[in-house]
Amino acid sequence: MTREMLKEELGKRGLKFIEKEVVKNGEMLHAFEFETKEKDGYGVAVLLYPDELIAIAEMRGDKMDRVVDEIIEAVSDENIPKEISSFLNKEDILKHLYIEVEKVNNNALDEIRRKCEYCEEIESFLVRRVVENDSLYMETKLKRGMLEQFKIDEEMAWKMAEKNTFAEGQILKVSFGDNTMLVATNEHGNKGAVQFLNKEMMNEIKKEYAVENLVILPSSIHECIVVPKTEDTDLGDLSRMVRDVNVSTVAEREQLANRAFII
């Protein structure tokens, strides 16, 4: 599946959009901007990143038809609020707050961010989801101005985001030979590496394997590998593994850190 193939199929389905370059997380990305719709005196334009959608589809084994169906649903009138004011309120903002993680971004202005206590290369930040369906949603990074506008306490925002984010947490046990690999992600398989901050879930793993610490291998922003730490665990070897995978497999914008770390 390629961007050109996706463009062609969207055109066949009658979707109108323009292509543009957008700076996201300090990187220039290609985007599809769909028709602006006037709602409640506001212009609402849906912006999707085709390369990200294709990468997720290939990871899940989705066919082109499913990807296009989800895009059509996301940009449909039914999924764009009839009144913008209906989701510009404190209660709705808190209900749809989530946490994500990425490499430290010193150019992220006015965003709600925290340094990671386990790894200096990582920051967590707050996002607000706008539209959701089974496997596709749109979101925007929460700005400090929005907290001030709606008189939302920052600590309250983090607590609600933790509740929403960690409710989606999953540990997948992937077997290969006599070994089992633990993978932390979310139910969407998208931007789920943040689950290493899910202390309840991590404590359950520690209890199950009777260890005091875990080693996290940040394979991408979408997931991380969790290794129970024993006397034989070699952090240097695991860090080299992370760097090798980053170089050979993971797109730069989806890399989380260049080393393993202990929690």
Rank of each mutant, 00 (worst) to 15 (best):
K199M: 12
E187M: 12
A184V: 02
M138A: 14
A157V: 10
F32L: 07
E117F: 08
E58M: 12
V215G: 09
Q170P: 00
E91D: 14
K24A: 02
A57I: 04
D134G: 05
R66G: 00
K229F: 02
K95R: 14
V247D: 13
D234H: 09
E252A: 13
F32H: 02
K20G: 00
L197I: 10
N203E: 15
G177H: 03
Q195G: 03
K163D: 05
N179G: 00
A251Q: 13
N246S: 12
M241V: 10
R259C: 11
H222G: 09
S175C: 07
S248D: 08
M181N: 05
V104I: 09
M201Q: 13
F17H: 04
K82I: 02
G177P: 06
L48T: 07
D51A: 09
C119H: 09
A193R: 09
M1G: 12
I221C: 10
E200Y: 12
N179W: 01
D92F: 11
R240H: 12
V67W: 01
P81S: 04
G169A: 14
D69E: 14
E27T: 11
F196N: 10
E187Q: 14
A210I: 10
S124F: 02
D134Y: 03
E58W: 01
N133E: 06
S239H: 07
M241F: 12
V245H: 07
S239P: 08
S219C: 08
N89G: 09
V67K: 04
I72L: 11
I54S: 06
G26S: 07
Q170K: 15
K16T: 12
E208M: 10
V242Y: 06
R13L: 01
E4C: 06
A74P: 00
R60K: 15
M59F: 11
V23Q: 08
L217S: 09
R243H: 04
E252C: 04
M241N: 09
L94R: 02
R144S: 03
A260P: 06
H30D: 09
V245N: 08
R259Y: 01
K229D: 03
E208N: 11
E200F: 13
V22Q: 04
V104M: 03
K24R: 14
A193G: 08
S175F: 01
I225V: 15
V68M: 06
E187H: 14
G189C: 07
G43D: 08
K16E: 11
E148P: 07
K206E: 05
G43T: 01
M181G: 01
R253H: 12
L47N: 09
